[in-house]
Amino acid sequence: MAGNSAPIAAIELVGVSKSFGAVTAVQNLDLVINDGEFFSMLGPSGSGKTTVLRIIAGFEPATSGTVLLAGQDVTSKAPFDRDVNTVFQDYALFPHMTVLENVAYGLRVRGIGKSERNLQALEALRMVRLEGFEDRKPSELSGGQRQRVALARAVVVKPKVLLLDEPLGALDLKLREQMQIELKELQRKLGITFIFVTHDQEEALTLSDRVAVFNQGRIEQIGTPRQLYERPESEFVARFVGTSNIFSESEAASLLAQPEACSVRPEKIEMRPSSQSQKDASVLPGKIIESIYIGSATRLIIEIDGGKKISVLRQASAGSETNFDRGQQVFIEIRNADLVPIKK
């Protein structure tokens, strides 16, 4: 059938810009977020990702552009008229209310009776595994527990889209990993769109269906975690998402016989015992100047002839392990297929 209609996007931003005085936080942004997807906005601080989230939530008016929510223009609507809910970075729990009152707040302001809203709030607390905490004050909870209350409070009103502003930023590593798994489970269970803001590229790759990488108020690249990692389109993405070796146009020409600038991941580079040249690959001689043992792997910094430093990741594998020491002369092999051209 010709002209099969695309499903209505959960969120659509058309030409959205935002300036604070002379500072442009977001520049002419177009973005489509599909219904039911776990979408991450990844970028360093000041890259505009949080501003975009706040524009979607309605806390900041866009300087120009249109915000569509499920196909409807909400650009000039107040936060309380938008069917999205936010989990704040600092959780923003009401300190003078109990956990149950916090979770029931959204239902209360919608005029739902006390017994009915408490029932739903308890159900939401059960979902985030916080039953038994309903009578406590937020100040009596740990960081992870507050996080769960904030989640329960946001999902109890059944929004179409849940916005999460660096929600795991304040948690320690173990708790963060556990909450990542719970977030993913929660999203599957609810089936609603999650928009997740983070500066942690590993978190974005782990959780998301798609990721938008932000830099200086623009989106550098949008793609699945695999696309971003395997085919970074710009130097910024190659460097920000994981680690990359970047070859400028002249370096690519002289060292790799390539016509344009490109990047290669450290784990894609092989160590070779000799300079014997391989088909569709470049073999470069060099010297190990740093060897960092990181448990499951060893990170080597190799200075190739001409002075360029290359990062190589050697995975530990079953069986015998070759030792690489500082000062050792080695050869590295970079296959042409592993080179990713950088579009400027």
């Binding site: 936060p79 704040f88 923003a92 729990l93 919608r110």
Partner: peptide, 17 residues
Amino acid sequence: PNSLLEASGDLGAKTST
């Protein structure tokens, strides 16, 4: 914190509420 006021609006409360 401003985020408390934003959270309230976000959860559907009018400004007076």
